[in-house]
């Protein structure tokens, strides 16, 4: 399988593997086998490996299907989106069914938005991983940002007021200025600026 979903065989077959394969094929042809393909023989106890899977199709790996499924919530209660649930919790019976539903709808010519609308109509807004950005739901998106922005603005104003108050309350220097030339004071300031943090 390539990165775009295409299956490939082993390209870098060594000489040993080549002759091994020849011998395998010869052995395969010479014996009476109960199975059509020796490379996909039955495992000892299939039940131990969980639910039987169906081979991956092009639709399973389709980026648009995956992208759409990442916007839809699985209804099994896991809190994951349909794509993540069906590729993670292989005991879940809901997400494969929802996946089939999505693929079916897209196959019937529905646009992604129509699929989303159909899910919302059938299951309610809870079927979406993100609530629609309108109405009351908008609060879910903007309240934290607004709260932080407003708090930052208030903090800025309060800090400005504190600093003004501090300056107003500071004692006025009535004694003589320090006995230093402007050049010396400037040099002192430069040295002070060099002090770490």
């Amino acid at each position: 399988m390539t990165s775009d979903g295409r299956m490939v065989g082993r390209a870098d077959c060594t000489r040993r593997e080549f002759f091994g394969a020849i011998a395998g094929v010869a052995g395969f042809l010479s014996q009476t086998v109960q199975q059509s393909d020796s490379q996909t023989g039955q495992v000892y106890d299939p039940a131990r490996a969980g639910r039987s899977q169906t081979p991956i199709t092009a639709a399973d790996n389709d980026k648009s299907v995956q992208g759409l499924e990442k916007k839809l919530r699985c209804s099994c209660g896991c809190g994951l989106d349909v794509y993540t649930c069906r590729t993670t919790d292989f005991t879940c019976t809901y997400s494969p069914a929802l996946h089939k539903e999505v693929v079916g709808m897209l196959g019937n010519g529905k646009t992604p938005q129509e699929v989303i609308d159909a899910f919302v109509a059938q299951y309610g807004q809870v079927a979406l991983m993100s609530p629609p950005r309108r109405g009351f739901n908008l609060l879910g998106y903007i309240v934290p940002g607004i709260a932080v922005t407003v708090a930052a603005a208030v903090l800025f104003v309060v800090l400005l007021r504190w600093t003004r108050q501090a300056r107003a309350a500071a004692p006025v220097l009535t004694t003589a200025p320090p006995d230093a030339t402007p050049a010396e004071l400037e040099r002192l300031q430069r040295e002070l600026d060099k002090l770490p943090g």
């Binding site: 809190g79 807004q125 079927a127 991983m129 993100s130």
Partner: peptide, 8 residues
């Protein structure tokens, strides 16, 4: 009922 999921 809504979901406030990972994307949000």
């Amino acid at each position: 009922k809504i979901t406030y999921g990972v994307p949000t």
